[in-house]
Design a protein around this nucleic acid. Structure first.
Length: 887
RNA sequence: GCCUCUGUGGCGGAAUUGGUAGACGCGCUGGAUUCAAAAUCCAGUUCUCGCAAGGGAGUGGGGGUUCGAUUCCCCCCGGAGGCACCA
């Protein structure tokens, strides 16, 4: 009897489909489990072996939870807006919706072939107007929400208090005031523009080398365009705090914290000399004010005109012009050499009345803090470099007394080295105003100075975030249209909920305009609107970025066909939060941060019931492939490689090659297609191998032989367990029973800890014993089928049916561990002498210590190690080890 | 430079709270089966000395704590990912 996986898998996939085996009910009486995969962008290339890794993991959990009696929500859908379909449309004229549908169909086919237990009745697609109606609806909520800093909460815009002085200025002023508070706003923004894609990119889509993440070209330039922005930094504090209660990988939490980049410090006002103007700086080290020897403002700083003096204006103007031509990137690239120009102006240090020069330099960024800094070269490395470059005095005010060696300390004190750590202040007192922090440490110094600044109205404690407003529009066709109308009188209005969705118009051409206009600007019938008063308006032609649809899709799965609301709130209340979210680490920051932001806004508005969406997050590791290189490091395509006795040779030249691990790539000819694996070994083998390769979160190389290995296992499982001659009635063998229950325990524990590789190994060990014994009872065989089913569901079902069951194994209760079978009466103790194992000796688990000690020492094998030596100590750890210390 | 993770046989990887390092799988070696091969089954497989019994070394390197360290602490080296003039 052969393991005909093709037939078995087809049979059960059809069965599941016909019987809607995995349909999730609305029964809220059972405990729930929401297992979510990051939904894919359905690319034309189809599935790669990386996809099934996370999908299989969450599928095993889902199947296990069903057997444990949970109501499980395990859905799949498509993040289907995106550039490739639109590029294809530009080239061929094919509507992106057609390409998208084709790709979704292909992805669905491939995913179904893996035997994943999704409830396909809940499939969603971000490009479906019935879906993006609610994406637009949420955008409306963002538009109509402001963030109340005092309450740390988003609130409806009509609850925004309007200050009397604004009210007094009239309607226009009020509107302006309100618009400035909305979480979504429309404004000029300096944006990155990719000349190749003809699209605006978010800062984070421009890579460090200046190339565009999506297309890889370096045709990214700065442009000023009207854009939609979201005020995500207002939620900075909430986004940081919320991380604390989440079961996420620490690294991902850290990355989000760093990205949000909260810093606490103070704003300090400096009076400028000779003009009636103040310059406000942001600093995290107000304690070092006594050491400030100059100031720097960013080249784009608006006060620069007032600050620069007549005789310096030419130099400064040249510098500003040069800086404007540089991108942020060029600025950081040239980080090694600091540039700058003296403005000719001096400012008064508020702490001691000293005059210090104001410079302009591009190492200060306009977008962070106040765009101006006080420079303390003795205690800031960047300022130190600048001061050395331009011969500006360095005054040490923090003595690293106990923290470093005498040489280094002397250098710091002399201003020849920079010290950013803690110490004791020197030169930090002013008798005139009573401020004296000499001798204090850093923490006390900061606090004392901030208090002093506050009392004297010269500054205040401030919090800053690196996180910037989120650029939320793209000049594209294939995205959600903004439900926004720009009226001829300058008013902006949002389309009422009852008129959503605002559907994308059909078009003939998808070419974006060169000037940054979206293709929608050419959809004239769609574009222009007139209200009941005859006022003319023009629809927003930007569309939303791909992030939009993925920011809330997990909520739509809860109630995917609801036309009256994004989802039913009773169901939402039941299903949220997501119990397990599995996906790639590449989404550690952007998707997860954006989506948490939206979720918090919805929470504040009472739309959702939890503050955080994803309770537990897990990142599957990347799957790499073996590749080959010759002695000189040249890569050799895999089809040119011959393997012999574990060594690798070039087929033509015979040269010996080194096996390395690299990303799968067409050029290396080492790309693995899941369809091929399924065809050759079956979906159960693919699933099992992906789980057996190693820990789920590890990066690991694909090895064809490994697939053969697990295929062999499944073949042996089938050969043994599907052969009814081996399945007998009667009492089970003690040894088999013991191992069976150990296996249940191991497999279950490993599922709960997402350590699938060792769970599989436990099943292999059990099969090895069963095969050796030659027979097992039916009860044992059924239990084994249940353990196997979450991993290899097709074979699990097949065996289950073979044992006489007519219904699916999916909802059979998970086997219980019977401790009495596992309990050991005796333990075979390793006996160590000075930490080295010399022999084994068996004792009862509850044996008396003294008796054990005597018995071990009396053992003839012990004599060799105790002879001529004194037994100093005997350590006995019950059920673990015996160690005898001799001297 | 900073943050996070990581380093174990020929390979992928196992080792509860510190307690027999190398489970399980691949590969390799030998054997059975076969006319032969594939497939399958059985045995062996960290390195090293030894015919063997039995020693010795060993988890990137160096130190430390401990009766005992892959596990805990310190320093160094290598690999992956992220951030990078954020004052």
């Amino acid at each position: 009897m052969e393991y005909n996986f093709t037939q078995i898998e087809k049979k059960w996939q059809d069965f599941w489909e016909e019987n809607k085996t995995f349909k999730t009910t609305k029964d809220t009486s059972k405990p729930k489990y929401y297992a979510l995969d990051m939904f894919p962008y359905p690319s034309g290339a189809g599935l790669h072996v990386g996809h099934p890794e996370g999908y299989t993991a969450s599928d095993i959990i889902s199947r296990y939870k069903r057997m444990k009696g949970y109501n499980v929500l395990h859905p799949m859908g498509w993040d289907a807006f995106g550039l490739p379909a639109e590029q294809y449309a530009i080239q061929t004229g094919t509507h992106p919706a057609i390409t998208t549908k084709k790709n979704c169909d292909n992805f669905r086919r491939q995913i179904k072939a893996l035997g994943l237990s999704y409830d396909w009745d809940r499939e969603i697609n971000t490009t479906d107007p019935k879906y993006y109606k609610w994406t637009q609806w949420i955008f409306s909520r963002l538009y109509n929400t402001w963030f109340d800093q005092d309450m740390q909460k988003g609130r409806p815009i009509d609850e925004l208090p309007i200050p009397a002085e604004v009210e007094a200025k009239g309607k226009e002023a009020v509107r302006e005031y309100v618009d400035e508070k909305r979480l979504a706003y429309y404004d000029d923004a300096q944006v990155w523009w990719c000349n190749h894609c003809k699209i605006v990119c978010a800062n984070e889509e421009v890579l460090n080398d200046g190339s565009h993440e999506k297309c890889g070209t370096k045709e990214v330039v700065r442009k000023n365009l009207k854009q939609w922005m979201l005020r995500i930094p207002q939620y900075g504090e909430r986004l940081i705090k919320g991380l604390d209660g989440l079961d996420w990988p620490e690294g991902v939490k850290d990355m989000q914290r760093n990205w949000i980049g909260k810093s606490t410090g103070a704003e300090v006002d400096f009076q400028l000399d000779g003009v009636d103007e103040k310059l406000t700086v942001y600093t995290t080290r107000p304690d070092t004010l006594f050491g400030a020897t100059y100031m720097v403002i960013a080249p784009e700083h608006p006060a620069l005109d007032v600050i620069v003096t007549e005789d310096q204006s030419e130099k400064v103007n040249d510098y500003m012009r040069a800086a404007a031509l540089k991108s942020d990137l060029d600025r950081t690239d040239l980080a090694k050499e600091k540039t700058g120009v003296f403005t000719g102006r001096y400012a008064i240090n508020p702490i001691n009345g000293e005059k210090i020069p104001v410079w302009v330099a591009d190492y200060v960024l306009i977008g962070y803090g106040t765009g101006a800094i006080m420079a303390v070269p003795a205690h800031d490395t960047r300022d130190f470099e600048f001061a050395k470059e331009f011969d500006i005095p360095v005054i040490c005010i923090l003595d690293p007394a106990d923290a470093t060696d005498e040489d280094s300390r002397a250098q710091v004190l002399a201003g020849d080295a920079c010290w950013t750590e803690d110490g004791a202040y020197i030169n930090s007192a002013n008798a005139d105003n009573g401020l004296d922090i000499n001798g204090m440490n850093k923490a006390d110094g900061i606090k004392t100075v901030i208090d002093w600044l506050g009392e004297n109205k010269l500054g205040k404690a401030t919090v800053n975030y690196k996180l910037r407003d989120w650029l939320f529009s793209r000049q594209r066709y294939w995205g959600e249209p903004f439900p926004i109308i720009h009226w001829e009188d300058g008013e902006v209005s949002i389309v009422e909920d009852e008129n959503l969705p605002l559907v994308l118009p059909d078009m003939e051409k998808y070419e974006p305009g060169n000037s940054g206009e979206s293709p929608l600007a050419n959809a004239e019938e769609w574009l222009y609107v007139t209200d009941e008063n005859g006022r003319k308006g023009r629809r927003e032609t930007n569309t939303m970025p791909q992030w939009a649809g993925s920011c809330w899709y997990y909520l739509r799965y809860i109630d995917p066909t609801n036309d009256d609301a994004p989802f039913d709130s009773v169901q939402e209340n039941y299903w949220m939060p997501i119990d397990l979210y599995i996906g790639g680490a590449e989404h550690a920051v952007l998707h997860l941060l954006y989506s948490r932001f939206w979720h918090k806004v919805l929470f504040d508005l009472g739309v959702v019931s939890t503050d955080e969406p994803y309770q537990k997050l897990y990142n599957q590791g990347m799957i790499l492939a073996f590749a080959y290189e010759n002695a000189s490091g040249g890569k050799v395509p895999s089809d040119q490689v011959r393997e012999e006795e574990g060594k690798f040779f070039h087929k033509e030249t015979g040269e010996e090659l080194k096996q390395i691990v690299a990303k799968m790539s067409k050029s290396l000819k080492n790309v693995v297609n899941p369809d091929d694996v399924t065809a050759n070994y079956g979906a159960d083998s693919l699933r099992l191998y992906e789980m057996f390769m190693g820990p789920l979160d590890a990066t690991k190389p694909w090895a064809e032989n490994g697939v053969k290995g697990v295929f062999g296992f499944l073949t042996r499982v089938h050969r043994f367990f599907a052969n009814m001659d081996n399945i007998v009635e009667g009492e089970e063998d003690k040894e088999v029973l013991k191992l069976l229950h150990q296996t249940i325990q191991k497999v279950e524990g490993d599922i709960n800890n997402l350590r699938f590789n060792t769970g599989i190994s436990a099943m292999m060990i059990f099969l090895n014993l069963a095969t050796k014994k030659g027979k097992v009872t039916k009860e044992t065989a059924e239990t084994f089928a249940q353990l196997l089913a979450p991993y290899a569901p097709h074979l699990g079902e097949e065996l289950w049916e073979l044992y006489g069951h007519s219904d699916t194994i999916t909802y059979e209760p998970w086997p219980e561990v019977n401790e009495s079978y596992i309990k050991e009466d005796t333990h075979n103790y390793p006996v160590q002498f000075n930490g080295k194992v010399r022999f084994q000796k068996e004792f009862a688990v509850d044996a008396d210590r003294k008796a054990m000690e005597a018995a071990v020492l009396a053992d003839e094998r012990a004599a060799k190690w105790t002879e001529g030596k004194n037994v100093v100590k005997v350590i006995i750890v019950p059920k673990k080890i015996i160690n005898i210390v001799v001297k």
